[in-house]
Simulated assay, not measured.
Amino acid sequence: MRVSMRSRGGKGALSDAELTTAWQAASLLLGYPDDDLLARRPLLRRAVAGLPPAVREPLERFLDHLDAASPPEPAADYVATFDHRKRCCLYLTYYAYGDTRKRGMALLRFKHAYRAAGLVLDDGELPDHLAVVLEFAATGDLHQGRRLLLEHRAGLELLRLALTEASSPWASVLDAVSATLPPLDGDTHQAIARLAAEGPPEEEVGLAPFGGPVFLPDPSVGARS
C-alpha cells in the first residue's frame, strides 16, 4: 500500500513500510543516546538505507555524527539541548498550549488514540513526546499516528527551526520526519510564525522569538535524486 503524501524528494509516495521504517528510526534517534542506542547504529544504517534520499540522507547524517562523537558527548549534548532549552521541547502539545488546562485535554487525545490501538503508556511517560508519537505511528497505528503529527505540525516545525538555528545535530532527525509529511501550507506557516513570536499561551516565560524567518528550508534541498 502507498499513502497519498509524497516525500520531498518528489519521486513518489512513501509506502507504509517506508513510513514505518523512517518513523521507527527517528523515534529511536530522538531518544536518550545511551549505550543501547549507540549499539544499534549498524542496524539503523541498514534499516534506513532503502528510504528515499530526502528521508534517508538526514538520518544518515545524524548517524555519522554519532559515529564521530566520543561516547559521553551525545548524552551530554542531549541533556543540554532538550532538557535545558524551552525552544527545543520534545513535547508537541507544549507549543500550542503551554502548561495550561487545554494542554491536559490535548494529552488525553493522544492517550485515547494509543488505547484504541491497544497501547498503554507507563504512568511517568507523557504521550506527546515526539519519540513516543513516532513509535506509536510506526508500531501502533500508522494513520492515527500521522494524524497526531499533522495536528501538531506547527510545533514540530518550530522544534525543527529551533534545532536548525542552534546547529544541533538533531535537526537532521527533524528534517527526516518533516520530509515524510506533506509540504507546509500557508496556514501552517502562519501558525509557526505566531508561535515563534508569542510562545506558548499563558506562560510567564515562553518561547523567545527566534528573530529570523520562520519559513524553514526544504529538507530535501541538496538531496540526491
Rank of each mutant, 00 (worst) to 15 (best):
Leu107Ser: 08
Phe110Ile: 03
Ala106Cys: 08
Val133Arg: 00
Val133Asp: 00
Pro127Asp: 10
Glu135Gln: 12
Asp123Gln: 14
Asp141Tyr: 04
Thr139Ser: 14
Asp141Lys: 06
Leu149Phe: 11
Asp123Ile: 06
Glu125Arg: 12
Glu125Gly: 09
Ala131Gln: 10
Glu135Trp: 03
Asp123Cys: 01
Phe110Ser: 02
His129Thr: 01
Val132His: 00
Val132Ala: 02
Ala106Val: 08
Ala116Ile: 01
Leu148Phe: 09
Gly104His: 11
Ala137Thr: 07
Ala117Met: 09
Leu149Asp: 04
Pro127Tyr: 04
Arg115Gly: 10
Thr139Ala: 13
Glu151Leu: 04
Gly118Glu: 13
Gly124Cys: 03
Arg109Ala: 11
Gly124Pro: 02
Asp141Trp: 03
Ala113Glu: 01
Arg153Leu: 09
Gly140Met: 05
Ala138Ile: 04
Met105Gln: 14
Leu149Ile: 13
Asp128Lys: 06
Leu108Tyr: 03
Leu108Asn: 08
Arg115Asn: 14
Leu142Tyr: 12
Arg109Gly: 04
Asp122Cys: 06
Lys111Glu: 15
Leu121Ala: 05
Leu149Met: 07
Gly140Gln: 06
Val120Leu: 09
Ala106Asn: 10
Arg109Asp: 09
Thr139Gly: 02
Tyr114Gln: 04
Ala116Gln: 12
Leu134Val: 10
Ala113Pro: 02
Leu134Met: 10
Gly140Tyr: 07
Gly104Pro: 13
Glu125Ser: 09
Glu135Ile: 05
Gly118His: 06
Gly124Met: 05
Asp122Tyr: 00
Gly118Tyr: 03
Gly140Thr: 08
Ala131Asp: 14
Phe136Asp: 00
His112Arg: 15
Lys111Thr: 12
Arg147Gly: 08
Arg146Val: 12
Asp128Phe: 02
Arg115Met: 14
Arg115Ile: 08
Phe136Lys: 01
Leu142Pro: 08
Arg147Leu: 13
Asp128Glu: 12
